[in-house]
């Protein structure tokens, strides 16, 4: 009888002991895992990088056909006032047949007549396309040409030929007044 009681107690004891070990080890595990949070998040953009994530561009002195090369989030930003011919030509293109179907209006954004704002980053592998500066190679579609792997964009920045999968990215932007664009 005494033996039976002892055994029962022993079994309960084992269970109690297991419980405390499991609790201790899993609490330590939770602690170890939560240390990972600061260790991982320290590599995310720092506060000064996040704060510098908007860029103001003054377009008052931009003549038709001219571009400004700016910097947005550490990447080149192309701001161009398109010429009347370019606008007419781009409007005439049937967007539905393109790799990344976008009309000129979608490229320019609402209420925007002729200022094309886009990132100067080829959507293929990130090189800077030519075409925004004076005398640069504009490619077969008279827009932008990426020399790294031969992507050709038209004057509205739409991909027409070559390996790039999508049109040049258009960042979010607003006109803060008549002449200043805030990008980001």
């Amino acid at each position: 009888m005494a033996t039976t009681a002892d055994n029962v107690n022993a079994e309960e004891g084992v269970r109690r002991r297991d419980w405390i070990h499991i609790a201790a080890v899993s609490t330590a595990g939770v602690g170890g895992a939560s240390i990972l949070f600061p260790l991982v998040s320290q590599m995310a953009p720092t506060a000064d990088v996040l704060a510098a994530s908007t860029t103001d561009v003054d377009v008052s002195s931009l003549e038709p056909g001219q571009s400004i090369k700016g910097v947005f989030r550490d990447q080149p930003l192309f701001v161009k006032r398109m010429t009347a011919e370019e606008l007419a030509e781009m409007k005439a293109v049937d967007a539905s047949g393109l790799r990344d179907a976008q009309t000129l209006e979608e490229r320019l954004g609402e209420g925007n007549e002729d200022i094309l704002v886009q990132l100067g980053v080829c959507t293929h592998l990130g090189c800077v396309p030519l075409g925004a500066g004076e005398g640069e190679d504009k490619g077969e579609f008279n827009g932008y040409f990426c020399p790294c792997h031969g992507s050709h964009y038209d004057a509205a920045g739409r991909i027409r030929k070559g390996p790039a999968p999508t049109n040049l990215a258009v960042p979010d932007f607003v006109f803060t007044n008549e002449t200043v664009i805030r990008v980001g």
Partner: peptide
């Protein structure tokens, strides 16, 4: 809290 659990576990061991 973790130290307390660890101590109880240690006592049991």
């Amino acid at each position: 809290f973790a130290t307390f659990l660890g101590f109880m576990s240690y006592k049991t061991v």
